[in-house]
Design a protein around this nucleic acid. Structure first.
Length: 190
DNA sequence: CAGTGGATGCTCT
DNA sequence: GAGCATCCACTGT
């Protein structure tokens, strides 16, 4: 049986939490599966929404760890982050992809397509498949509708540069489950 | 397959 | 007014 991830799990460096999330299972109202791709955004990161200080949008990043930070991307999609480190420090992990395992029919209905590979492989797709919206911004991750279960074994993890950013685009802060077919983009060859 | 461009709305300069 | 932590449709090989 898997343990529910505690606040203590998130109250660590985002660079420790991010790789530890690969293989952990995320459920939102029972819909989800194991995470296969995440990215770290730390307090010194020019690419982070929190880099220039606290604003109306990024307030949840400055709140306590173990909560959600949800923002709208390109005016169209929602993106889900998990807040890490200590209250006031503003670090978070962006969830980029998971393997559809639980509630696949609900994911298909929300996404409007059948192909398992396209259900949750991308931060916007993941949120649409799991029904995550701005209403979830700031919500605690250890209470409904969220469930986060620790992985039961340590998977093989690949590291790569992050995706879709211009500043600090070379930092290797993207973590991917080795060999997963459900990542949003393949890891570049070493 | 690779590359391009539009949609769409909000945040911050 | 610029710039997005994106996705999809459409083009051309």
């Amino acid at each position: 049986m898997s343990d529910v991830l505690s606040t203590a799990f998130f109250a660590r460096s985002v660079h420790a939490v991010a790789p530890d999330l690969i293989g952990a299972t995320l459920l939102v109202d029972g819909v989800g599966g194991p995470l296969v791709e995440v990215e770290a955004y730390d307090p010194t990161d020019p690419a982070s929404h929190a880099f220039r200080g606290r604003t109306a949008r990024n307030g949840a990043m400055f709140g306590p760890p173990g909560h959600a930070y949800v923002y709208r991307s390109y005016g169209v999609h929602w993106c889900l982050n998990l807040v890490c480190e200590e209250e006031g420090t503003a670090a978070a992990v962006l969830l980029r992809a998971l393997e559809p395992v639980h509630g696949i029919e609900r994911m298909r209905a929300r996404r409007g397509l059948d192909e398992p590979r396209l259900l949750a492989s991308g931060p916007g797709r993941l949120c649409q498949a799991l029904g995550v919206t701005g209403a979830d911004d700031g919500a605690p991750l250890d209470r409904p509708p969220f469930v986060l279960l620790a992985r039961t074994n340590v998977p093989e993890i690949r590291v790569a540069p992050r995706i879709g950013i211009t500043r600090a685009a070379d930092l290797p802060w993207r973590y991917v489950l080795a060999g997963s077919r459900y990542v949003s983009r393949a890891v570049p060859r070493a």
